[in-house]
Design a protein around this nucleic acid. Structure first.
Lengths: 142, 142
DNA sequence: CTTGAACCTATAGTTGCTGTAGCTCCTATC
DNA sequence: GATAGGAGCTACAGCAACTATAGGTTCAAG
């Protein structure tokens, strides 16, 4: 039997985060002591580790919910897990591409800055210059 | 004079977002009609475009606040703008590196999956396998 | 003068936690 | 058995940066 603090320490999770996972139904309600403190078994430790590892790979909590559900039903088809992972991979790839574009624009902006006062600043000028930006909606942002 | 809707359309911003920027002091309180509706000038349009362009480059609102402040004071030194931009570039580079690591792990995981039932699923197995993960705190996530 | 699109305020929800206040409990030590 | 203090408890507020909703008002075209 583990306390919530032990689970936290062993998985690198904050205590409040574990309670939060319980609240949203990702972690089960554990048994309690007479005094009302949570006591966990090894199964719970494994489940929390699964959640944290998935989070480290960037899976959103809703995806983790599905993955846990599959993990709880070993007879089901693996395809669903595979497609969740592929979706996540696509998501990561999209973000990388977007960030690489941002990186180029930032590099260009910084590379052109020759110092001086704010009025001469190339960085501010680029940001002000909405010629290619106004009215046509890019997405980007994050 | 522009309505809030015109500003929104011309900058690709949601109307609520403009009101939100006003609320947090990024956009000034504009003049109002007798009936209480906001009316903007071209200066406001430029300012909003600046904000949106900066957001598209991933600058957080607090950084944009500083950049706007510099832009409002042309005599100041440009160095601050430059260092904000460099900070943002470093941030973007860090995120790219992290996402690339995630991509590798996801690719490996997916590449090893040979289908079948959930119990045989390599994806789930990798997520369950906390051997390298338990107790040592990575960061990652996102 | 009427219609209806666009505006208004205020508030709650999103994602995934994190932090705080003000308690109670558990366990080790004396 | 008493006590100290670290760990646990609930409940709620806050973060970033919006987005959505409800329920009402205004503006401009026909």
């Amino acid at each position: 039997m583990h306390t919530i603090g032990t689970l936290a320490r062993r998985t690198g999770t904050k205590v409040q985060t574990i309670r939060y996972y319980e609240q949203i139904g990702l972690m089960p309600e554990p048994g309690r002591t007479e005094g009302g403190q949570r006591r966990y078994g090894d199964v719970d430790l494994d489940r929390l580790a699964f959640i944290r590892h998935s989070r480290q790979l960037g899976f959103p909590l809703e995806a983790i919910r599905e993955l846990l559900d599959l993990s709880d039903h070993p007879a089901r088809d693996c395809g669903a897990a595979d497609s969740i992972a592929r979706r996540q991979l696509r998501e990561v790839e999209t973000r990388i591409a977007r960030l690489q574009a941002l990186r180029s624009e930032l590099e260009r902006m910084i590379g052109e800055c020759r110092g001086g006062t704010a009025s001469e600043c190339r960085v501010l000028e680029v940001l002000r210059d909405h010629s290619e930006c106004l009215a046509d909606d890019h997405d980007a942002i994050d």
